[in-house]
Write a protein that binds this DNA or RNA. Structure first.
Lengths: 166, 166
DNA sequence: CGCAATTAAATTGTGCGCAATCTATTGGGG
DNA sequence: CCCCAATAGATTGCGCACAATTTAATTGCG
């Protein structure tokens, strides 16, 4: 009744696909936000948000990094990073200085307080792992699926409209 | 070599866990945002954002709904829904009216334009499915994993700090 | 060298997500 | 009947994500 029968043979389950509980992206978003809530709880003692925590992770792992590289690692652009880094700077955790070799580039480094914070953050991953209820294997498999999905979606996002098959 | 087997039972892979590329949440966020980009492309013709599209899906499926119920279906609170619905209203897609039986409640209904939009949205799920590169089985399995994860995380979010095992 | 194209960040504007607060209606108990 | 707790939405404030624009430094090409 609500579905005028399109003649295309594979159009059958349009109704089905439109159902919220059938949609991958919805489950993905829900999981992402549930994760956010758990991280928010764990990170509020450190005074960090989750994206800020990611920046700190990158700096703890790699040391001083230009904003550009940080953006590549975290998939974030300057529109997101600039104000975020400014907040981390005014929290006393990072230092921002123009690169000597390329004055366009801004290098982000850790302050002593930022370096020290690593110790207090050491417990976070374990608690997160516990909260997921997944063992390492399951988590790895899920990550692999998600990374494959991201790759496919990134590829699909490049072509705006061109769908030769329609 | 990145993971020396330390003898302490819980200190072992702290380094490992802190690595960005080991973190489930990071992959999850990346996938979620990659999805967002694809939806943005597909939905811009309809003049919808992804959350707005979710609201429309819910309305197409269930008809008129109170804001409260909409929030339960989409896991969104009034702080998010109120302005979003106002934008949908000013776009002429939904109607907002106080419930007769309970004047606290606001019922969201479709306008003719909102109802009509369903036809133009019918192609979206199929294109999304194509963009993921997943077949129905894989997508269902991934959804199941994600839903289980969300459930576990929701449970963990309830207890703020109490971790008796640490 | 000098000037155009490129690149790195920052800025602006919009919308989502969430916490905290506020307002108005409802319903229950003294 | 009146007051108070509970409930539904709306509002405010902050931070993130992203598009589009701007500024400044660098590179490259004639």
């Amino acid at each position: 009744m609500t579905k005028p029968p399109t003649s295309t043979p594979d159009a059958g389950s349009a109704e089905d696909f439109l159902r919220l509980d059938r949609q991958l992206c919805f489950s993905l978003n829900a999981a992402s936000r549930a994760f956010g809530a758990v991280y928010r709880n764990l990170l509020k003692d450190l005074g960090l948000t989750y994206p800020q925590y990611l920046v700190m992770l990158a700096l703890w792992e790699h040391g001083e990094l230009p904003v550009k590289r940080l953006g590549e690692l975290l998939r974030l652009d300057s529109g997101t990073l600039s104000p975020l880094l400014k907040r981390l700077e005014s929290a006393g955790l990072v230092r921002r200085e123009r690169s000597v070799h390329d004055e366009r580039s801004v290098l982000i480094g850790l302050t002593p307080a930022g370096t020290e914070l690593r110790g207090r953050a050491a417990l976070v991953p374990r608690r997160i792992a516990a909260a997921t209820g997944f063992d390492l294997d399951e988590a790895a498999r899920l990550r692999a699926l998600l990374d494959r999905l991201t790759l496919a979606l990134d590829g699909a996002a490049l072509d705006g409209a061109p769908s030769p098959c329609d």
